[in-house]
Design a protein around this nucleic acid. Structure first.
Lengths: 328, 328
DNA sequence: TTGAAAGCGCTAACAA
DNA sequence: TTGTTAGCGCTTTCAA
């Protein structure tokens, strides 16, 4: 057990005062004479003193750390979301403990097991696994983003249903006769499915078939391209696609072009998410944009309320917006 | 000061043993009779005991946390890099403390001030600011990625010089007569500048002018587009561009198309980075790919050596690879 | 095979 | 205005 080079006690010794006094100087608390303050500061400088954060955390039972549990950060949506969460949390004095689950339930559980042991003051989650009971058992403040976790955990989400309607409506307005949708496999109780529900309801209302191709979040690009190729083979008549996220929309466009389709002439495509990186790399994509930065902010607001003890406000739903690119 | 609901002492009481024994059961250490082990386990279950990580950290003077200091995670290169670092660190039992500096020196210093106080066992940095002396003052193991920090901090980087040559060579091979480069403003001692140096040397060797447009990392897309528009106005003769990163390459292509250029017919473009997200969203971009995953792995290897006490191996340079898209 | 006691570095009652 | 003392929850010598 190596000891930290210089501790508060050493500073006290050098300054010729008690540990309490040094602690007071450190935290600007209580009455101190200027002379003492100076003495202590000087001793600190001399010794290059750095207060030990862990000891403080142990005493205060508070780490000022917030855990982020998401599938991965290597994705336009989550990258922007986590960056913004970090930003918002930083402003409020928190630091971020990152936990990418890779959609692996074991890994998500492993993170939780650790984090719930006093390692963090709160959790913001948006991973894709279900049935992780630990979320329910804990006292820790938790807020979820775009994912339903458990009854008493508030969810911050975009208005996915409205977004699904917008996207479908746009394709209908464009005159598309054969619209196909992509989404996750059924079974994940994600707000994402609201996009699908909106699509299906609109198609049914018009007595058109609702066809959804299911694509796993963590398939490789090649696997996804294969699915989209199958889509075009099985449905050569398709003239409009509403993809449940921009990455898929991009892959669909690539596959379609390879097959000789012209966009938007031959085929119209609408994506979903509208994250920074997609807007930069693929501004021509028409998409339903989620207010990612605002979602981050609201999640942090909610979390802070919970940490402060408010057994608070329920879930939040934020409006989305159709961005005109040119692919629809 | 709220106390943790149930602690080791409570378990000991219920199990009718000492704290020591419970601790031993917890850590599988020392001699224990099966009967005792069972008793303790049962008590733990009964009380829903969760060991306090912070207390353990204080005693062990070790947090199993690694700090990551980068400009932002909302960028294809850093998103992949941080995701991969998280992955590699996780496998070795570490968790990640995220610190996005936003290229803000104050913020970088603030992170460091905190992290260096025993909050993390090591640091992996790749932020863009210089002159942060704290890196030099600390005993903490530090490894840098793609950025020169201080004499005794090892750097993991791609072979940027070779990459710069590859890109320039490709454009020359394509028959480009007027090649322009984009890069950061001079002054940041980043390995990135090796890309520029390679370009300039090759141009000079052929007695052609070397022209570099400087683009800040944290300019907005609009500001960047403005610069690239200026580039085309000032140099209508340009027929090849070597962009120092894929995002800029993408913006350049967008601007060029808006101005009626046809790629690669009229204008050839080579980017740099080849991160996952760019490959997915923009596979048609010809680019020099950095081995990002490998860089992450090597950085973690180096860091682990340092933590283990090895006053180790120096810096590492990894090979890059030209990926054929179609834009050059 | 088990326990008592000291201590990791810091903070806060309480007293002086 | 300052110091004494106890304690945050855990682990580990050392002794039994």
């Amino acid at each position: 057990m190596k000891k930290q080079a210089v501790k508060l006690e050493d500073v006290a010794a050098v300054a010729g005062v008690s540990k309490t006094t040094v602690s007071r100087v450190l935290n600007h608390r209580g009455y101190l004479s200027q002379a003492t303050i100076d003495k202590v500061h000087q001793a600190m400088q001399e010794l290059h003193y750095r207060p030990n954060v862990i000891a403080r955390q142990l005493f205060q039972q508070k780490t000022n750390l917030i855990g982020l549990v998401f599938p991965t950060v290597d994705n336009p949506f989550f990258a922007q979301l986590e960056a913004q969460l970090d930003q918002e949390l930083y402003r409020r004095g928190y630091r971020v403990l990152m936990g990418n689950s890779q959609n692996n339930p074991e890994r998500e559980e492993a993170y939780l097991r650790q984090l719930l042991n006093g390692q963090v003051d709160g959790l913001i989650v948006g991973a894709h696994n279900e049935g992780i009971k630990q979320y329910r058992d804990t006292q820790l403040p938790v807020v979820s983003i775009e994912r339903w976790v458990s009854k008493d955990i508030p969810v911050v989400a975009a208005d996915n249903y409205a977004g699904g309607k917008m996207a479908t409506q746009r394709l209908l307005d464009d005159g598309c006769q054969h619209i196909i949708h992509t989404n996750y496999p059924h079974g994940l109780p994600s707000p994402n499915l609201e996009r699908r529900r909106a699509y299906e309801e609109m198609m049914q209302a018009r007595h058109r078939p609702a066809i959804t191709y299911e694509v796993n979040f963590d398939s490789t690009d090649e696997e996804k391209r294969a699915i989209f190729n199958r889509l075009f083979t099985e449905h050569p008549e398709v003239d409009g696609i509403f993809a449940d996220n921009d990455t898929n929309a991009s892959l669909i466009i690539q596959v379609a072009r390879k097959r000789g389709r012209h966009i938007p002439h031959d085929l119209k495509v609408v994506g979903f998410d509208g994250a920074n990186m997609t807007r930069t790399l693929l501004p021509e994509l028409t998409t339903v944009q989620q207010p990612i930065d605002e979602m981050a902010k609201r999640a942090v607001d909610l979390l802070q309320q919970r940490i402060a003890g408010g057994q608070t406000t329920g879930s939040v739903q934020l409006p989305v917006q159709l961005i005109d690119g040119g692919t629809a």
